[in-house]
Simulated assay, not measured.
Amino acid sequence: MITAGSPVQADTAQADTAQAVTAQAVTAQGGGQGLVVVGVDDAPQAQAALAWAVVYAQRTGARIHAVTAWSATPQLVAGPELVTGGGMSDPLTDQHLQVAAEERLSMAIAALPLGTAELVERSALPGDPATVLVEAARDAELLVLGNAGRGALASAVTGSVAARCAHHAPCPVVLVPDPARCARDEE
């Protein structure tokens, strides 16, 4: 696992260092197929991960595959609403969830610097995010994810997608921190 600063905010030396470290990890693990998979959700660190992947792809010629996962979450109702049926809304259909996931990907890609969106392939897939990302990274040289930086205990309790991917991915994993957290740490 590689933790990288965002080259969008980092100076050129840091970006070059991140690329060199990443290239060493890819070579060491037999990667180099030219595909970078990026996990995208609505968190700022996911946007930073996508931006990092774009810079990496521009420097190496790799292809980028942005992936988001969705799954139906059961609606839980408690209290008087359970007895009266109040508070129940129509459950979201798979089609609604697919459309929402595709919109999330479109917004993330639209936020990239001008002229870079064409570098990005996209997929919105049903399933558990960690499982979907590990499967998508099967033939990738890198899996790039945003990292909330919650710490080991919080990740163990909540089941961090980044932690699960780092343990099960078939390729090196680059974790890109939340840009706001990096700015706070530099102060």
Rank of each mutant, 00 (worst) to 15 (best):
R63C: 11
V8W: 13
V132W: 05
Q98P: 06
D16P: 08
V134C: 10
A130H: 03
A162N: 08
A62I: 00
A156V: 03
T3V: 15
V174Y: 05
R164A: 11
A43S: 13
I2A: 03
A152C: 05
Q58T: 13
R184W: 11
P177A: 01
D90I: 15
D185F: 14
D16T: 07
V40L: 08
D178E: 01
V161G: 02
H168C: 12
R59A: 13
E186A: 13
C165I: 04
E81G: 15
A110L: 08
A46T: 04
P126Q: 13
A25N: 06
A137Y: 02
V132D: 03
Q45T: 14
Q98I: 02
V120Y: 03
R184N: 10
A166M: 09
G79A: 03
A101D: 14
R150I: 05
A108N: 12
A49N: 11
A28M: 11
A53S: 02
W52F: 12
Y56S: 12
A23M: 05
E102N: 10
G5M: 11
V40S: 08
G79H: 02
V161K: 04
S160F: 02
S89G: 15
E186W: 10
P91G: 03
R184V: 12
S6I: 09
G87L: 04
A137K: 01
S106H: 12
V161W: 01
G115C: 08
L142F: 00
C171Q: 01
V83K: 05
R63H: 14
V21Q: 12
V173H: 01
L35H: 05
I64Y: 06
R150D: 08
V77H: 09
L143D: 00
Q45D: 13
V55A: 14
